[in-house]
């Protein structure tokens, strides 16, 4: 459903979309059913001359069951949603798969800067490539990101990855993604960070291995 609006570009994007679809179906059924009953009752029991209201206390068993059964069904639906949500959450935020590359993402007012591993594919060596506002990654590789903030809270948000994580000053937060589509996408800051919050975007370039190698070569000195 979400993929009609925003392209999927990471391995877990489909999981999140499917979770959202599941919740949409479950809550949608409940919502339309409830509104249907609601408007139906409004129509059926509208004021009519000579048709007085009934005296109903809510203790009558045959009426109470119309509340009790939906009540239990709601609990069942809730359980399904919880299980699905926790699974997705575990996959994205708790579990860390085998990492192939590492990058540093640094938020500061009001730009994202990125430290990419250079030709040796190792972060923290002399050939690291630093960029501002551009993140270059290879598709189909698991990246671990180390998210930092220099000043205030920021939030590293990549809609096509369905990824969002707050950056907290004084702390390095880890996370992962694996891109599976090629292209250029938006990176946003999703946490209010002051006057320039509205311009704190960056571009994500997901490259093929060849393109990425060429980019590394062009940016190494």
């Amino acid at each position: 459903m979400i993929d009609l609006l925003v392209q999927r570009a990471s391995t877990y994007a489909a999981d999140i979309d499917n979770l959202i679809l599941l919740i949409t179906v479950i809550t949608g059924v409940w919502f339309f059913l409830t509104e249907f009953v609601f408007f139906g009752l409004l129509w059926k029991f509208r004021y009519q001359e000579g048709k007085p209201a009934q005296y109903v206390t809510g203790k009558e068993k045959h009426l109470k069951k119309w509340i009790n059964w939906p009540h239990f069904l709601v609990i069942c639906c809730d359980l399904i949603i919880v299980v699905a949500a926790v699974q997705v959450w575990y996959n994205v935020k708790q579990d860390m798969p085998e990492v192939e590359k590492e990058i540093r993402v640094v938020g500061q007012r009001w730009a994202w800067s990125f430290v990419h591993p250079g030709a040796d594919a190792e972060l923290g060596t002399d050939d690291d490539i630093k960029t501002v506002g551009e993140l270059h990654i290879v598709s189909n590789e698991v990246y671990k990101f180390n998210l930092e903030s220099r000043d205030v809270m920021h939030s590293f948000s990549v809609p096509v990855f369905r990824l969002k994580q707050d950056a907290i000053p004084g702390r390095v937060i880890q996370g992962w993604f694996e891109a599976n589509a090629i292209g250029q996408f938006d990176i946003q800051c999703a946490e209010m960070c002051g006057i320039g919050h509205g311009i704190m975007g960056a571009q994500l370039f997901v490259d093929t291995p060849e393109e990425h190698a060429a980019w590394i070569a062009a940016n190494s000195n």
């Binding site: 999140i16 959202i20 994205v92 935020k93």
Partner: peptide, 9 residues
């Protein structure tokens, strides 16, 4: 739902 909130937050 935590999983969906990653996107909607």
């Amino acid at each position: 739902s935590s999983g969906a909130d990653i996107y909607f937050h």
